Simulated scan of single mutants.
Amino acid sequence: MPLLWRRPLLPALLVLLAAAIFLADTITNLEIAVAVFYVAIVLIAVRYLDRRGVAMVAAACMALTVLSFFLTRAGSVPAGVINCAISLVAIAVTAYLALRTATAEATAREAQAQLAHITRVTMLGELTASIAHELNQPLAAIVLNGNAAQRWLAGGNRDEAGKAAERIVRDAERASELIKRLRGLTRKVAGKAVWLDVNQTIVETLPLVQNEAGRNHAALRTELARDLPRIQVDPVQVQQVILNLILNALEAVKDERVRDVTVQTSLGKPGEVVIAVRDSGRGLKGVQLDHVFDAFYTTRPDGMGMGLAISRSIVESHGGRIWAEPTVPHGAIFRFSLPSGRTGLRQPDR
């Protein structure tokens, strides 16, 4: 998606550029095919407008080309006819090919979004035990506090009953928030960028993998930098990347003597927030770092090799980057960066 501030300026930019080309084409000789530069306007329109908008822009450029031909007085008319025809063909062919390319890219992005959704649902299926455990905690607390409130009311102690009711509301909201996050992860909807607190997202994500960490007897820690700028991203997609990296790290340490997984946040380059997942596992020996994020590349016998590939596509669609490095004396760290203060998310064309 382009930067939001460019959207209102786009029509004015296209009109000014078309006016400049029209003026130059009209005052120059017919032998000079200035109208060919309308191709640039069509290419700009393809980047920012839908199919109908591009078609309208291309038609307007062709109309201006013909109008300029009739208004131009200087030069050879036969040469002008040829140049006019060439310009019209160039505009039409450019619009056609550009629209074909844009359609193919939109189809690829839609297929990528569907694959990401399938991977996300599969991931949540693997976390069923963790999700059930996390949801059972507030539900059990609601039952206990409900029973306690009944006893306090029966005893005439309204103050304690009121406190129990407050705890019930708090635990109900906690369960509701968990269900809301899970619904967001399972729903297949177009990505929507919002201003996100990265640290808060990590805190909300960890409960989903706590049971998995306990099952692997791994210590799951956080090192979150303070005063990080908010980033404008699709929260569901970013949470999917974080979940995937944590699950990979837990898998990497499950057979090790030391089983530590640390989620870190920090400032990267100016205007950049970095999220990292470090593990004390077997490291990256035998792993081809140039291919670790390629589709179907995996070192696990039961792995599909899609998690990291989808993570890379998500990060790059937000204008960020993702990379992996070995750590000393052992283990690995996977980092990804996201730009702050901008919208990097590309939406499928509609």
Rank of each mutant, 00 (worst) to 15 (best):
L9N: 06
L10P: 06
L14T: 06
L23Q: 06
N29A: 14
A45H: 04
G53N: 02
M62R: 04
F70Y: 13
G80I: 06
V81Y: 09
L88S: 09
I91P: 00
L99P: 00
R100T: 08
R100P: 05
T101L: 11
A102K: 07
E105I: 14
A111H: 10
L115M: 15
H117T: 14
T119Q: 09
V121D: 02
L127T: 02
H133T: 15
L135D: 03
N136V: 05
N145V: 02
G146M: 01
N147K: 09
R151M: 14
G156V: 01
R158H: 14
A161R: 01
A165C: 11
R170T: 11
E173R: 15
E177P: 04
L178C: 05
R181P: 00
G184N: 10
V189A: 11
A190I: 14
W195Y: 08
V209W: 00
Q210H: 12
R215L: 06
L220K: 02
E223W: 07
L224K: 01
R226P: 10
R226E: 13
D227K: 15
Q232K: 14
V238E: 03
Q239K: 13
N244A: 14
N248G: 15
A249H: 00
V253T: 04
K254T: 14
K254E: 05
D255G: 09
V263H: 00
S266M: 14
K269H: 08
V273F: 03
K285Y: 09
K285M: 06
V287W: 01
D290G: 05
H291F: 09
T299C: 06
R312C: 05
V315H: 00
A324Y: 07
A324S: 09
I333C: 08
I333H: 01
L345R: 03
D349L: 11
